[in-house]
Design a protein around this nucleic acid. Sequence first.
DNA 1: TATATAAAGGTCAGGAAAGGTCAATTATTT
DNA 2: AAATAATTGACCTTTCCTGACCTTTATATA
Lengths: 155, 155
Amino acid sequence: MGNLADRIEEYLKRILEQTSEGYIMLQRSELAGEFSCVPSQINYVLDTRFTVERGYLVESRRGGGGYLRIIRLELGLEGQYQQVMRQLIGDLLTRDRLNGLMERLVDEDLLTIREAALIKSVLSGGALSGEFRDWDVLRARLMKNILTTLSREDL
Amino acid sequence: MGNLADRIEEYLKRILEQTSEGYIMLQRSELAGEFSCVPSQINYVLDTRFTVERGYLVESRRGGGGYLRIIRLELGLEGQYQQVMRQLIGDLLTRDRLNGLMERLVDEDLLTIREAALIKSVLSGGALSGEFRDWDVLRARLMKNILTTLSREDL
DNA sequence: TATATAAAGGTCAGGAAAGGTCAATTATTT
DNA sequence: AAATAATTGACCTTTCCTGACCTTTATATA
């Protein structure tokens, strides 16, 4: 565990633990400087260690005043969204199943009525139904995106 | 949010909120002076932050006694915002413009942060970001669906 | 009245300041 | 030895900021 990537990972996770915001912001070049490495090494760490599967989301902005933001997702026992998500993985999601899912999520107070209605209007509405053969695949993928977003700890 | 453009944006939005007129008037060179920057920096901020999608209109006049006027467009609570929004969306909706619209809807308290994040995760996320122009068409249609849903009385 | 001048704001190209990508190299595991 | 992981560096894109030059408007003056 002595390699550079691991040390950067540890460092980031430590300060992520200490914050109550649910996210941290930092500058890539600055962090690279602290660890005396090239900036792209930071991307390597982010790409390999701070993935959605591992419970993190990374946002960034370029240009003057740019930044990296690492967001923690709710995982583990509390991660109810993740349970739902696991059941979706590799599946198609038909409109019927989507509607059932929405009902359940509202019942469990994981979604408000409004949120469920919004999701349905996009994923179950008629706008796209005819045009893509594998709309059910797309629906599953989009639903996973939504669940991931809703697990953000900064929301 | 340490960079100059962001600070100017914040400043302008703050005084815009404090006024009851719905607009503010100012002098470009004077504002530039306060922030110790070049006047064209003000144009940069106006062009990138005070766009129509985000709910602002900028008027100006040159010459002696010239001015800038920043108008905050009100959406009207009675559902008229629908018309305005639909017009802004048109038949194509790029990701950038979508993000502007989201910011505005949140500003107007028509969407919660969570709802906006949810919508963005679908319409602005990776799944709808291929090389094809068709996504922009799709995005426009889906966004209009969302507006329709939002105007439902029972939500 | 016609015109010159000063006092605004507008535009655009270029440079600087971030972060992103990718391929080549080196180290570590299997 | 082969496969995988880590590391580096060259080059790219986006965002921000500045400065030189341009256009419009008001006003003073010939």
